[in-house]
Simulated assay, not measured.
Amino acid sequence: MVKTIATVALALLSSLGHAGEMLQGDAVAGEAKAITCGACHGADGNSVVPNFPKLAGLGDKYLLKQMKDIRDGRRVVAAMAGQVDNMSDQDLADIAAFYDQQVRTPELADAELMELGRKVYMAGIMERKVAACSGCHSPSGKGNGPGGFPGLAGQHPEYIAAQLKMFRMGYEDPAGRTNDSDSKIMRATAFELSDKEIEAVASYAAGLR
């Protein structure tokens, strides 16, 4: 079973993290291009409203992929409608580079959810073939920039939970989130998690330092 989980994690590393050839972003240019983004995500990428993810330190490869997916219709985010439609790949790479250089503000984990959240994040759930989140997002929650896996530490726990539920829906319903990878690793993982487990692991991940 451990071997199965490790194999799934390796498949994710080779598929979800693959976003094609990485453009070199210019953070200075990106700061100017990201001015309108600040209305929702904060001038430094630290949004104050949980509906909007913190982009600071998210990882330029991951953020570039998400913006391209939104622009090209592979990921539907109502609040982003029209925001990146007219941006080139280079524009998006510059914005991604700018936000990746920012420092994310911390969040606090819910003490009552700590034990369950730690178990799911660090060890997964073997009997349901749920891979440990730490395998791709790192034990410290800092993610894997070169692999294209976002850092979760300091992200709004409400946002993490909402995305896990969207991936869970996307496992069977295209109205959910489906832009993880051909292996459907995030969809398959989230599909096996209960609401309580999602809330717990989201809280734990957000509170990592």
Rank of each mutant, 00 (worst) to 15 (best):
A97T: 06
D94M: 05
Q101T: 15
T36C: 07
L16H: 13
D72F: 00
L63Y: 00
V84Y: 04
A27M: 04
T36P: 02
D89F: 08
S15G: 06
K54V: 11
A93F: 03
G45L: 08
Q101G: 15
M67N: 12
G17L: 13
I35H: 11
L23F: 10
V49C: 06
Q101N: 14
V48G: 15
L58W: 00
I95T: 01
A34D: 03
L10W: 09
D44V: 00
K33N: 06
F98V: 10
D89S: 08
N86K: 14
S15K: 12
F52P: 10
G30F: 06
L12E: 15
A97G: 02
L63H: 02
D94G: 07
A19K: 11
Q24R: 12
L16P: 07
I70S: 02
A93S: 08
T36M: 13
E31F: 01
A19F: 12
N46F: 00
A81E: 14
L55S: 07
A27L: 05
G25S: 04
V77G: 00
Y99S: 08
L16N: 12
M67V: 10
G59W: 05
K33L: 13
E21Q: 14
D60T: 00
L55V: 09
P53N: 03
N86A: 13
N86M: 12
A39V: 15
H18M: 06
K54L: 03
G59M: 07
Q101I: 04
L12Y: 13
Y62W: 14
G38T: 09
G45V: 02
Q83K: 14
G73H: 14
A43W: 08
V48N: 15
S88N: 08
R74S: 13
N51M: 11
K33D: 03
L58R: 07
M22Q: 10
G20M: 11
D85T: 15
A19P: 09
D85G: 15
G30Y: 04
K33R: 14
G25N: 02
A19L: 02
N46S: 02
F52D: 01
D60L: 05
A34Y: 00
F98G: 03
L58G: 08
I95L: 05
D100G: 03
H18L: 12
D72C: 09
Q83R: 15
A79W: 02
D60F: 01
L63F: 04
I95N: 00
A78C: 04
L13V: 05
G57A: 05
C40A: 10
R71C: 05
I95G: 03
D89M: 08
G20E: 08
D69Y: 00
A96I: 08
M80T: 05
E21Y: 10
F52E: 04
A39H: 14
Q66D: 05
E21I: 10
A27C: 06
A43L: 14
L64Y: 11
A79Y: 06
S14E: 13
A96V: 09
M22V: 09
A34L: 06
E31G: 05
A79T: 07
E21D: 14
M87D: 11
H41M: 00
A78W: 09
R71A: 13
G73Q: 14
A39Q: 15
H41V: 04
Q90P: 08
G42R: 01
G17W: 13
A11G: 15
A27Y: 08
L13Y: 11
T36L: 13
V49S: 12
G57H: 01
